[in-house]
């Protein structure tokens, strides 16, 4: 029984680390910042989740509390931190790639329709 869990956990670990590899290849290959941060956030969060599940399958049962706490923390904070980076990039005018079609946010800001004051972090 323990053997099956070990093999299953090993598969989760390898797939998770492959997802981390996809994240780093993505931030290497993508043409502009906004596409890089999309790939980086999604693939790295997914890879870390898979690795946490794999470690939980392999390791003793008493570790599972800490692993659940770590998983919840990463799942809530990783999108927030990349959202903060993307806002900083947008408002310091990091350039888009040439293929970008529409930019609704630029239209709204230039018409002065934003509801809140734009200088709060």
């Amino acid at each position: 029984m323990g053997n099956i869990l070990d093999i299953l956990g090993g598969i989760f670990l390898v797939v998770g680390s492959l997802s981390l590899l996809i994240a780093s290849i993505g931030i290497y290959r993508m043409p502009d910042f906004y596409n890089r941060i999309q790939v980086g956030t999604k693939a790295s969060t997914f890879g870390l989740l898979l690795i946490v599940v794999g470690v939980a399958l392999i390791s003793p049962i008493t570790w599972i509390g800490k692993l659940i706490a770590l998983m919840l923390f990463v799942l809530f904070t990783n999108p927030i931190s990349s959202h903060v980076i993307a806002r900083a990039a947008y408002f310091t005018k990091v350039p888009f790639t040439k293929e970008t079609k529409v930019d609704k946010l630029h239209d709204v800001i230039s018409e002065g329709h934003m509801k809140k004051v734009k200088n709060n972090g």
Partner: peptide
Amino acid sequence: VDRIVALDVVSII
């Protein structure tokens, strides 16, 4: 900001 994204991914790894 590209460097910060790379730093974020490296810390997750």
